[in-house]
Nucleic acid binder design. Structure first.
Length: 293
DNA sequence: AATAAAGTCAACCGCGGCGTC
DNA sequence: GGACGCCGCGGTTGACTTTAT
């Protein structure tokens, strides 16, 4: 009614992305930076809608994202954050810089939900359900509410991290100076270059005879070589991945070291324990305590 | 070895928020 | 102040893979 479908334009391609399309998109983002997605299809000739381009970039081509292989710390963190924030995957993802909201959402729906439900004895208490899909409160309000929850969140994080022996074993020396705010997306050309490397590897695996070229998209879409069976090839950013094109699921990968995100979180927690307070958390100063609700 | 069922994940859809005119 | 357009988010779907029978 009010709004026409975003991709009503005829000729807009849907479905899995091909490596060629990925290359075009990466090339464009390298030159122009992410953003102005509306202009991407027209400037690149990609027969994709702007949304699709943005999604592809943020979920797969963006450098520095890690896929599959969620560690116990990450699991615990997601569970706790989910309890605190509800299904605000973007907000949760901001605490896991290497993970995309889509990835976290999928992981929650496929793994953690069951896990938590089981742990809760099927009481169904695991889902706070922050108001039927959309936030029950306006954004500004929930952000403020989130800030009030910071202490609770920290406790939860501490809990989450302390539950995992591996976390406790992490040498404090690894902790880096930290911004408590979620890391900003990479902006330097070098960062984009790493994305180009992703694509290069992707193509490498795609063209390799044994590389399961089109196994993914059984229905003839070569892109599934990227997103399906060979999906892992497209996301080397940050984590070393074998070009074997394993299924991209967690079992296909070895257990890696704790992600930097956890160093950050731990550092944040440490800072807190040392009395550095909330300054800077969420990067948004709480203007007025009276604003709460 | 073949088939069915379950699990996983990439992508799409629709909605709401925010900025601009 | 209202209308319009773009962006981002969360829910959902469909295709593919893996596991069980």
């Amino acid at each position: 009614m009010g709004r026409p479908p975003c991709c009503e334009k005829t000729g807009v391609k849907k479905g899995p992305w091909t490596p060629e399309e990925d290359l075009v998109l990466v090339d464009y983002v390298q030159n122009h930076g992410p953003g102005n997605w509306r202009a991407v299809p027209t400037n690149t000739g990609l027969m994709r809608c702007s949304k699709s381009c943005r999604l592809r970039w943020t979920n797969y081509l963006r450098p520095g994202i890690k896929r599959g292989n969620f560690s116990d710390q990450e699991e615990n963190l997601i569970i706790h954050l989910q309890q605190l924030l509800g299904n605000r995957w973007a907000a949760i993802a901001s605490y896991l810089p290497e993970r995309t909201d889509n990835d976290i959402k999928n992981y929650w729906n496929t793994h953690l939900k069951k896990k938590v439900n089981k742990a809760a004895g099927g009481s169904g208490a695991a889902e706070p359900k922050s108001g039927g899909g959309r936030a029950a409160a306006p954004k500004g309000q929930w952000e403020r509410r989130l800030q009030t929850d910071i202490h609770t969140a920290r406790q939860a994080l501490r809990e989450a991290l302390s539950l995992d022996p591996a976390a406790a074993a992490l040498p404090p020396a690894k902790l880096e100076p930290v911004l408590p705010t979620p890391p900003a997306p990479p902006a330097s050309p070098a960062a984009y270059a790493s994305s180009a490397e992703n694509i290069a590897r992707l193509l490498e695996g795609w063209m390799r005879p044994g590389g399961k070229a089109s196994s993914g998209g059984g229905s003839g879409s070569s892109a599934s070589a990227v997103s399906g069976g060979g999906a892992s090839a497209s996301h080397s950013g940050g984590t070393a991945r074998t070009p074997e094109g394993s299924t991209g699921t967690s079992k296909a990968e070895g257990v890696g070291p704790a992600p930097p995100a956890f160093s950050m979180l731990e550092s944040w927690l440490l800072e807190d324990s040392m009395g550095h307070g909330d300054a800077g958390i969420m990067g948004v100063p709480l203007s007025d305590p009276c604003d709460f609700f």
